[in-house]
Design a protein around this nucleic acid. Structure first.
Ligand SMILES: NC(=O)c1ccc[n+]([C@@H]2O[C@H](COP(=O)([O-])OP(=O)(O)OC[C@H]3O[C@@H](n4cnc5c(N)ncnc54)[C@H](O)[C@@H]3O)[C@@H](O)[C@H]2O)c1
Ligand SMILES: NC(=O)c1ccc[n+]([C@@H]2O[C@H](COP(=O)([O-])OP(=O)(O)OC[C@H]3O[C@@H](n4cnc5c(N)ncnc54)[C@H](O)[C@@H]3O)[C@@H](O)[C@H]2O)c1
Lengths: 233, 233
DNA sequence: TTGCAACTGTTATTAAATTAACAACTAAAA
DNA sequence: TTTTAGTTGTTAATTTAATAACAGTTGCAA
């Protein structure tokens, strides 16, 4: 089995972590470090050193004993695995608050991923640029997507528009969709879909905060009871 | 073991899905449906009906045979589990594009989770409101957080500021942090942390799009080869 | 009124992901 | 030179998550 086939079988979670490792490594490079230990990466990512070493084993990277991993080498290897050789173009549909925030954030961050176009229906936005990215009329989506070879679409329109926008993206030949609206979309086989809703994350945090609050309250009550019991002596 | 203790042991993934189920159910309610089948929920969430039934089993909810689950009942039960009885207040640090987008999105969406304050250092933003949420000076963070009983902090400042903002939040007694900046933060024991970086998600989509592209290319090549072989006869 | 199809609820099984265990090696300290 | 502490890389074990299997129930159609 060649290297490419090995990479195909990497666990989904490892793919996510590789992206995160690279992000952390890039920060470390800036602080002109050249090597890093598994436990250092682990600490940054809130995972265990073993997890890090296991992931690196899976991608076939070896560090130096007692010296750690060469940061630049590791960055390059991760790029070999997760980046596409030719680069991938991305389009954003919905140039509102979130769409613009995303453009600002992504711009120039990753060599092999470039936002090539924005789309909107609001005449005030069409024809203008955000951070150098032109905003096109939604009607021309199909032509622009094919012309600019855009393969990934990010949806940031009002939830009522999500379904129709997703349909249009698929018709335009998009290969992957990243949906940031709270309305789930359906895609045909062969189109890769990720959805993310910030409310879910916030509710999860809230749930565990609530649990912790209750645990603390229980413990306080327990201490109180014990105090009472002790005073019975 | 009482109900509350059962809920404490729910798998993390189930917690996330419960939040998503509720979101989907709320949409269904709007379309004045009153019952829903496991396979309908499953389709919306891109998971299997079995997974849905299993999650509902874990929270002890029973549907009606051949009729499905009562949407309102299920919404209420999910609320009992993941919402906090008294409600939880949230603060957002960094009222830029992303911070404002989040406020607009969250506002009024969830009864038991309310954004109570924004914080910024930019004098132009301090003292103003976004969607009714006041923006305070960062210096007053501790007082405001304690005064308004804010338990969760969302970080949306420039990455260079992440560490110091997180430190300040912890010092102010926050219980949970949701970090949307690409700089990982460290929190002490007892503070629940979630981090989300949109680049990771986008890179993941890009990776699987690339894989699919290569698979398609391989298949095309294979067909080509077979064609050639066949013509040898 | 019998049989079939459509669901639910639960247990069993499998798969994925994480964690533990530990051998092998190295640099520096004793 | 020998020991010790620190670190990698890998296999094994465990835990968590997802899927499959299936019994049981209901309503409807034949
Ligand atoms: N704002 C957030 O933080 C946040 C978080 C999660 C999800 N969301 C969701 O993201 C979406 C966008 O949020 P926002 O705050 O940027 O909203 P927004 O109103 O600022 O932006 C929406 C943009 O989409 C455009 N639009 C409307 N219909 C369109 C169509 N059919 N085709 C193309 N463009 C269209 C509008 O002209 C507008 O520019 C919403 O669905 C929101 O629920 C937002
Ligand atoms: N924009 C996105 O879509 C996106 C996505 C993921 C992550 N992020 C990250 O989220 C952060 C915010 O993005 P944005 O587009 O809203 O940026 P932005 O520049 O529009 O907003 C940042 C805000 O933080 C304020 N600020 C600066 N220092 C502060 C401090 N010490 N305390 C409090 N407030 C402070 C600024 O005054 C500004 O209002 C960035 O770190 C960005 O990388 C953004």
């Amino acid at each position: 089995m060649n290297a490419r086939d090995t990479f195909k079988q990497l666990p989904h979670k490892t793919i996510e972590r590789l992206s995160q490792y690279r992000r952390a490594l890039l920060i470390c490079l800036d602080n002109n470090k050249d090597h890093i230990f598994s436990h250092e990466i682990a600490k940054i990512q809130h995972i265990t050193p073993v997890q890090v070493r296991r992931d690196l084993m899976l991608i076939g990277y070896s560090g130096t004993l007692r010296k750690g991993y060469n940061i630049q080498e590791l960055i390059d290897l991760i790029a070999d695995i997760i980046d596409s050789e030719v680069g991938i173009n991305v389009g954003i549909v919905g140039m509102g608050n979130l769409g613009r925030a995303l453009i600002n954030y992504f711009s120039g961050k990753r060599h092999k991923l470039s936002i090539a176009a924005g789309f909107d229906v609001n005449p005030d936005k069409i024809g203008r640029t955000v951070n150098g990215i032109p905003c096109y009329e939604c009607k021309t989506m199909k032509e622009i997507i094919q012309e600019k070879n855009i393969e990934i679409g990010i949806i940031t329109v009002p939830a009522t528009q999500t379904t129709s926008v997703a349909k249009k993206l698929v018709e335009s030949g998009i290969k992957g969709i990243l949906n940031y609206t709270p309305k789930p979309v359906e895609v045909p086989e062969g189109v890769y879909l990720e959805e993310y809703d910030m409310i879910t994350t916030l509710e999860k945090v809230a749930f565990y905060v609530k649990m912790e609050n209750e645990r603390t309250a229980d413990m306080a009550r327990l201490r109180q009871d014990q105090g009472t019991a002790a005073s019975d002596f």
